[in-house]
Write a protein that binds this DNA or RNA. Structure first.
Length: 490
RNA sequence: GGCCCCUUAGCUCAAUUGGCAGAGCAAUUGACUCUUAAUCAAUAGGUUGAUGGUUCGAUUCCAUCAGGGGUCACCA
């Protein structure tokens, strides 16, 4: 422990005595291991010997097998492993002395020629060795990798060095985000950035984090959603916009939730929620084609084929189907209250009618929505930013997409009647007074924007972390966030 | 936040009803010019998460605390 640290510091001193620069500035033109392997993997040993191909590459030492006057090491360039072979009769005396002071975990650069060992492994015969960095700490064990979840998350760099599955997940995450971006750019959307700090937290029902701005001497809230700012852009005539960024919600941490999480929200003028269900389906199928085998999500115990068209199910029908209540009974607050009291006496009675419906939905429906399903026509009471349904004033043109019992997307025809929007906010204020502390606050700046006239529009948000979970099979949200929220230690 | 489980060497894991805390890898020293879980010989490494308690004796039993995992609640 302490001993390994001091031993390795001594080795660095000895390297300096040999004339090595302990922290050099650059090692340019290093080839990626993957490229070297791909270029020469299929060539025979004799062929390679004759070709005498020079390569230059760098990586972290993962293993050392020394036979005294010759040494094999595996290097890792963050992506692939490559074996290098150092012989006393080939490298300079100094380089061989440097080699003898190397530890697993150190980073070196090498120049040499490509060859194949007797067992056929493509390797680099080192001619020149460049010391690049010392590791004072030992790497986790090579057989089992790093198992301890806490260490994996707190010291993610170790996880990335030792566990290749971790690296795969984040490479896939990058590809997914890239594909999503391309999807919207290809359709003429422009990417925007709106404030992360809001004077009034809005756009979603959630508790915010509070911070303070000293110069203005005001409290600000980390945003729970960018929605109200993106819709201001719609008023400004930005016809198609999207933003991929973090939202912050002051809620619990579990398999599906991290206090900061990544959302894409996108909006388009002259569209409604039907258009956006179609668009969501297209996006999911494009991603599936790129990321999945047979368009099938493998997650937990589920195998879920993504087959269009996705099922569409009205919110109230969904609850009615599972609860035994009729849709008309569900529209009656007294009946709903009675049902909850009778069937779920242990549940605290929600403070508002909307919350009661949400409770029933969560208890009866959510986990059953394994196949991709658009739940549609959410009640007005729980959808303060959605436009009322053209068929039933009690409902809104809102949908949520569920896959594997997880909420993945939430979209709607945007409410663009400023007077109705103000009434909805006022209703939220009444909910808040009844004890719903997640009810939304009145954002007068947003209302003023709507009063200038907003064309009909559709909008939607998709949780990127959950999407990545589904597409990579990751079991928890912590596996798809590089540095998930943990209690700080020490 | 409630409940349940976990915490032993740098890492991965052992330890009989409560009876001297062990192994592999990593490390140190030595041998070895095609090894790849390299091999061989030797060595070192521990306040068993922390603090109290019970006991002749605690990794083991009890209490409190800390961190983590799982679950429930809130939420996406």
């Amino acid at each position: 422990m302490e001993e390994q640290f001091t031993v390795r510091q001594d080795k660095l001193k000895k390297l300096v005595e040999l004339g090595v620069t302990p922290y050099p500035y650059r090692f340019a033109d290093a080839q990626r291991f993957a490229a070297i392997i791909a270029a020469h993997r299929d060539r025979g040993a004799d062929d390679l010997k004759q070709a005498d191909i020079a390569v230059r590459c760098a990586g972290r030492i993962l293993s050392i097998r020394s036979m005294g006057k010759s040494v094999f090491m595996h290097l890792f360039d963050g992506e692939e492993k490559l074996q290098v072979y150092i012989r006393k009769d080939i490298v300079s005396e100094k380089d061989f002395a440097v080699n003898n002071l190397l530890d697993i975990g150190d980073i070196i650069g090498v120049q040499g020629t490509v060859f194949k060992t007797h067992t056929g492994e493509l390797s680099v015969l080192v001619k020149e060795l460049t010391f690049l960095a010392k590791s004072f700490h030992p790497l986790p064990e090579k057989w089992h990798g790093l198992q301890d979840k806490e260490l994996r998350f707190r010291q993610r760099y170790l996880d990335l060095i030792v566990n290749s599955e971790t690296k795969d997940i984040f490479r896939k995450r990058s590809r997914i985000v890239q594909s999503v971006r391309r999807f919207f750019h290809d359709r003429g959307y422009i990417e925007v950035e709106t404030p992360m700090m809001h004077p009034i937290p809005g756009g979603a029902s959630a508790r915010p984090f509070v911070t303070h701005h000293n110069a203005l001497d005001i409290d600000l809230y980390l945003r729970v959603a960018p929605e109200l700012y993106l819709k201001r852009l719609l008023v400004g005539g930005m016809e198609k916009v999207f933003e991929i960024n973090r939202n912050f919600r002051n809620e619990g941490i579990d398999l599906m939730h991290n206090p900061e999480f990544t959302m894409i929200e996108f909006y388009e003028l002259y569209r409604d929620f039907n258009d956006y269900m179609d668009l969501s389906e297209r996006l999911l199928l494009d991603l599936a084609a790129e990321m999945l085998i047979d368009n099938t999500i493998t997650w937990q115990d589920f195998k879920i084929p993504l087959k269009p068209p996705f099922q569409r199910l009205k919110y109230m029908d969904a609850i009615a189907g599972k609860s035994g209540l009729s849709v008309e009974q569900l529209w009656n607050e007294a009946e709903v209250k009675e049902h909850i009291r009778a069937r779920f006496p242990e549940e605290p009675l929600p403070p508002t009618y909307g919350k009661m419906l949400e409770l029933l939905f969560d208890l009866y429906v959510e986990k059953t929505l394994v196949e991709p399903t658009f739940v549609t026509y959410y009640p007005k009471a729980i959808s303060p930013l959605s436009k009322w349904s053209r068929f039933d004033e009690r409902e809104t043109e809102r949908f949520e997409l569920y896959i594997a019992g997880m909420e993945i997307a939430n979209g709607f025809s945007e409410l663009n009647d400023p007077l109705e929007q103000r009434r909805r906010f006022e209703e939220q204020t009444r909910d808040r007074e009844r004890g719903d502390d997640e009810a939304q606050l009145i954002d007068n700046g947003f209302l003023t924007a709507l009063e200038h006239g907003m064309a009909p529009a559709a909008g939607e948000g998709i949780g990127i972390d959950r999407l990545v979970m589904l597409l990579t099979g990751a079991s928890t949200i912590k596996e798809v966030i590089l540095f998930p929220s943990l209690r700080p230690k020490e």
